[in-house]
Design a protein around this nucleic acid. Sequence first.
DNA 1: TGCACTCACTAACGATTATTAGCAATAATA
DNA 2: TATTATTGCTAATAATCGTTAGTGAGTGCA
Lengths: 191, 191
Amino acid sequence: MKGINGREKFIAVSIDLFLEKGFNGTAMQDIANQLGLQAPTLYNYVKSKQGLLQELLFEMVEKFEKGMADIVESSYTPLEKLKAIIAMNVRLTAQHPHQVGLLVNEWKHLESPHLEVFQESRTHYESMFAAVIRQGMETGELRQMDLDFMTHSVLSSIRWLFQWYRPREEEINPIELERQMIEFVLQGVAV
Amino acid sequence: MKGINGREKFIAVSIDLFLEKGFNGTAMQDIANQLGLQAPTLYNYVKSKQGLLQELLFEMVEKFEKGMADIVESSYTPLEKLKAIIAMNVRLTAQHPHQVGLLVNEWKHLESPHLEVFQESRTHYESMFAAVIRQGMETGELRQMDLDFMTHSVLSSIRWLFQWYRPREEEINPIELERQMIEFVLQGVAV
DNA sequence: TGCACTCACTAACGATTATTAGCAATAATA
DNA sequence: TATTATTGCTAATAATCGTTAGTGAGTGCA
């Protein structure tokens, strides 16, 4: 292959196409075309299309799991933990925007048993998130609100971030983005 | 067909399966199976699978467009308009949760030229939304913040709502949900 | 030099899938 | 009752797609 590391180019193109046209909407031939290769050649790099998806998704799953665990185990207050989780999300999204997009949009195309493993991991992540929020309500740092509702609202607020990195050519300052996101989630849009 | 109106059952099953397994992951045979029919029979109800997707999506597109236009044309203040837009989203999502889910997840599988029409409609919707927010900043009702960032954050905050209606069997009070969503977006989660 | 590994190819298979054609039974309607 | 529309079927087609098999050129290394 042309590039220094052929497999990395292959992975990058796969992520892009899966994100743009969806997992089922992308043929192995589409990926190969963009690399100037034939479809069967790709099986030198990966066992199957499904295995490729698993690799792409669970690589990010582990990063989010580790990021969350480190924060939860820390001695921060709940509010500080919430800020740290938001910052962790911004950072991971800034580093891997396309792959985070895949995680958000294409997880449902995982096959058993990987689909169930993914769903359990996500449930666990959300319950860790919810625990932090519940503790914040108990200490009085966070507003009293339906726990599930607040959990999903905050998660959804930061989930779109990967789109922020797509059309922009200018460099984005992740620290400033993190500050804005924390301001939005904590203070809302009203003065 | 069994039910009173066969086509309505067909539409409902299609929405459910497209949402669960994705547009490309759902075969016409899958839909037919769930109805106790054969795949070719479905072509009595619809011209093509792609035409079915278009019908399902643009029906919701029109509802959101009309809802937005009515609010923008009103004489509400910007802050009141923002609240009304959130309320409109909650109401449409409460009425058609699965179809709203489709709108969020499956639009990318529209074919030209419908894909472009959809994207232009969404861009227009977002620009109306952004205009309301910008006016709110000008009148001082809303916090000074990057306009694009706030627009996407608020939109994303309310986009997940269709998931709220999936696993729940209890009836949800849309008025209370609307109140909570407005509180979250305007005030955030901090005390 | 000889050996093994990497990475590319072509050919082909088997499965899936959207869709059309043609036909029959039933329901609605004139 | 005669006719027309609705709603279902089976059979078949044409295209797409993931994947395997088998091969060979080049590269690194013993």
